[in-house]
């Protein structure tokens, strides 16, 4: 859990520095997902990222969703998988499926 804790510490320091921050957390995985449930990614409105929710396949799409959540304040539950059109777009090459919860830190 320590790497996800470091993400929280980083998120806290970004927020203290006046950044707008969102947190994304892997909440469920099926098949060969590269990161286990509980893995975290912190994103700022200015585009900084810390941690990861995949091997890099979906971070871009999650960061886009995080920007929406930072603007609206509404959390989102994102589905990524091989049967998901959006996942084809962002290329989840491992063939796994996962759910990512995105929330604003506010």
């Amino acid at each position: 859990m320590s790497d996800s804790e470091d993400v929280l510490a980083t998120a806290a320091s970004w927020r203290a520095a006046g950044e707008t921050v969102a947190l994304a957390t892997v909440v469920e995985t099926w098949g060969s997902s590269p990161r286990p449930a509980g893995s975290r990614l912190a994103v700022t409105a200015s585009g900084r990222m810390a941690g990861s929710v995949s091997g890099g396949c979906i971070e871009g799409a999650v960061a886009d969703a995080a920007k929406q959540t930072m603007a609206s304040g509404t959390p989102q539950l994102l589905d990524f998988g091989i049967s998901d059109e959006r996942a084809w777009e962002v290329g989840l090459a491992c063939g796994g499926k996962l759910k990512v919860f995105v929330e604003a830190l506010s």
């Binding site: 859990m1 957390t25 909440v27 469920e28 286990p36 449930a37 509980g38 759910k99 919860f101």
Partner: peptide, 16 residues
């Protein structure tokens, strides 16, 4: 280990 559980039809993410 973190996991999602369903309670009274609501999904909760339990993150140790």
């Amino acid at each position: 280990a973190a996991r999602t559980v369903t309670l009274d039809g609501e999904a909760w993410f339990v993150h140790p």
